[in-house]
Design a protein around this nucleic acid. Structure first.
Lengths: 197, 197
DNA sequence: CGCCTAAGCTAACGCCGTTAGCCGAGGAAG
DNA sequence: CTTCCTCGGCTAACGGCGTTAGCTTAGGCG
């Protein structure tokens, strides 16, 4: 049950449609009835393809983990040369925040509440998170701290918890500077893929 | 609407009961019907006292903000002497994590999703957050980074997102060390008010 | 004494995820 | 060619949710 049991075409369609609904209308827009409607079907028929809403969400989550996993691995890989601001950690932070702001509802689905690990391909979560450990230099405690910071920063921004004028780029930069290995240390993080509310 | 319009006894009872339900049974246990039941009443009657579930939650949130505000102000005040580990920031971190682990469902209600600011007493949120700015030495960017870290760390722990053996005390210590002003710097954070899953 | 209001009630609405059970189309097997 | 079985639709319904409409009753007050 942990080895991605190949999806039927109809399941793939359901997952694709569900993702559209979630990204466009938020969690309240992703309803079994609405999803069925978007597929030209009645809600109970969905259960011929998917055992529950939770399984459907797990499929969305698995796809998203693969997506960000590739994104993050690519980000640390491309930041090999010390030309990038704040090196691998900065690149990773920009990728992280950028993806979250581009897919806020999906990000929340991925990160909030209980993760249905038993429904996820084994090792996927760990693989997607690897780049943090790399970027931080190998210390697992520091990696977890950096991860927690990135998530906290991101979810607070998405939820509009920071005051209107807050300079979030500066907050990111302040933390990255402190979490990074004592290597290249200058300027600000630069990327500002979105504004806080 | 922003100046806490004095609660009737029945409203106070509703809020108290709601808090018990939430803390004991989690968010699914806090239902208008269940709350009414616990008060010996039917659900629609609740609306004679409270205009919506959202208002009820706002009352819970306001109380909790007052509670943690006092807790946090007290924590930084009592850590004046540099005897405490990591000074004010360490004391604040221990208070923060301790309260969250003691009241996980309430913590989630406070921090997750959209905050109904228009229903909250003005300035309450800012006052409760003040101590972070103080503990960090005044830099607002650094304060926001520290806040984001603490929230990220806490919510990830509550949601069981860290691997089973992870040393969360060490992760807290690693971050506190880096966020703190370059003053007293030694040992570990010490407090371990709970284990991660 | 009469009236008004506060605070309870039942019934119901529209939504949710989900189950039970029916039915038609289409392919496989004899 | 016919029979049968499986797949994927369907309707009806259940129990739960927040919430509204509208009725009733008890108490206090003029």
């Amino acid at each position: 049950m942990t080895l991605a049991p190949e999806r039927s075409p109809r399941v793939r369609e359901a997952v694709a449609t569900a993702r559209e609904l979630l990204e466009r209308d938020g969690p309240d827009g992703l309803t079994m009835r609405r999803l069925a409607g978007a597929m030209g079907i009645r809600a109970p028929s969905l259960y011929k393809h998917v055992e529950s809403k939770e399984e459907l969400e797990a499929l969305l989550i698995a796809d998203a983990f693969r997506e960000i996993g590739e994104l993050f691995h690519g980000a640390v890989a491309k930041s090999e040369g010390p030309k990038q601001e704040h090196g691998a950690l900065g690149a990773l932070a920009r990728a992280y925040r950028g993806w979250a702001l581009a897919h806020p509802h999906l990000y929340r689905l991925l990160t909030e509440g209980h993760l249905p690990r038993e429904r996820l391909p084994e090792g996927l979560e760990a693989w997607a998170g690897e780049p943090v450990g790399i970027a931080v230099g190998g210390d697992p405690d520091l990696a977890r701290a950096a991860w927690a910071f990135a998530h906290g920063m991101t979810i607070l921004e998405l939820d509009g918890r920071f005051p209107p004028g807050a300079d979030l780029d500066a907050a990111w930069a302040a933390a990255i500077e402190r979490f990074g290995s004592p290597a290249a240390r200058q300027s600000s993080v630069g990327a500002s893929p979105g504004r806080s509310s």
